[in-house]
């Protein structure tokens, strides 16, 4: 029984990471109608930023998160304003190809600068955890879960309580009407992508504390972010939170409870969830039909 409880806790914590990764992805998809295949690479930028600040400046990885967000915000704004805005009205797979191209360029820049080596951020408290009976809760994963929830709350607040958030939602609902009331489309598009990238940066900073950093470390997260958004439903932060936690639970429980499935099956599990949800409930668990 305690083993099962342990798995559930680990699943929820893994889900926290998925929530962090998927929030920015979901925002960009929902508002700009862009499935950002470079999202995983943006996450890796955050990983390297935290690694760099931790190794060379000795800053605690959790304190580097705001800096990651600022760096990625700037990169995201420039990428959207300079590149993606140029194809935003083209058929959708042009944006897929463009973001895949950006992904390719970023990954190879990492390879040039950092080589294919694995790096890690190891703090004095990295291995520590809270013991409750037979159940262990690793501090770092707990902190990652809490920060992911705070990030979700912050994005939710920004979208639903601020003027800029309303402008973004207006553009997402009807861009022509939004333009009529004086919203600068180019700026709002760039801003939305920048916020999405900033979330990816924070997610990357969190991930650098729990996994090895390498140029292609972000690749699985693009597909997983997609599955999380499909699972929860597009267009609401709360749906992404539910989707992320649930997906983390499904992955850990499937790997530990189903005989024959192990760590090597995570993509296949993600894909199975994806197809099941798309066939049975295409709008997602909390989604509304378009």
């Amino acid at each position: 029984m305690s083993l099962f409880v342990q798995q559930v806790i680990l699943g929820l914590m893994l889900g926290g990471v998925y929530v962090a990764v998927a929030i920015g992805f979901s925002l960009v998809w929902g508002v700009l109608n862009i499935v950002n295949l470079a999202h995983g690479a943006l996450v890796v930028v955050g990983m390297y930023a935290t690694w760099f600040l931790f190794t060379h400046a000795g800053i605690d990885p959790f304190l580097t998160l705001p800096l990651d967000a600022v760096v990625l915000f700037a990169i995201g704004y420039l990428v959207q304003r300079g590149l993606i805005n140029r194809v935003i009205r083209a058929p959708l797979f042009f944006t897929l190809l463009l973001t895949f191209g950006i992904n390719l360029v970023l990954i190879n820049l990492f390879l040039l600068w950092f080589k294919a080596d694995f790096r890690s951020v190891t703090t004095s408290y990295s291995g520590a955890g809270l013991n409750v009976g037979a159940v262990t809760i690793p501090y770092i994963r707990l902190a990652a879960l809490v920060i992911a929830m705070l990030l979700a709350g912050a994005v939710g607040f920004f979208m639903n309580r601020t003027r800029t958030g309303f402008a973004i939602q207006a553009v997402g609902a009807d861009k022509d009407a939004a333009q009529l009331v004086g919203i600068d489309l180019r700026h709002v598009y760039a801003l939305t992508f920048a916020v999405g990238a900033a979330c990816a940066g924070v997610a990357g900073g969190l991930l650098s504390t729990v996994q090895a950093i390498s140029p292609t470390a972000g690749e699985p997260y693009t597909l997983q972010a997609f599955v999380v958004v499909i699972l929860g439903g597009l267009g609401r932060v709360s749906a992404t939170v539910v989707g992320g936690l649930l997906f983390g639970l499904i992955e850990v429980l499937a790997q530990s409870q189903v005989p024959g499935l192990g760590a090597g099956w995570s993509n296949a599990i993600a894909f199975a969830v994806l197809v099941l949800v798309l066939v049975l409930r295409p709008q997602g668990l909390l989604g509304r039909l378009a």
């Binding site: 590149l83 944006t95 463009l98 895949f100 191209g101």
Partner: peptide
């Protein structure tokens, strides 16, 4: 990657 970007744009 650059070719992809140039082509689609």
């Amino acid at each position: 990657g650059v070719l992809l970007a140039v082509t689609v744009i």
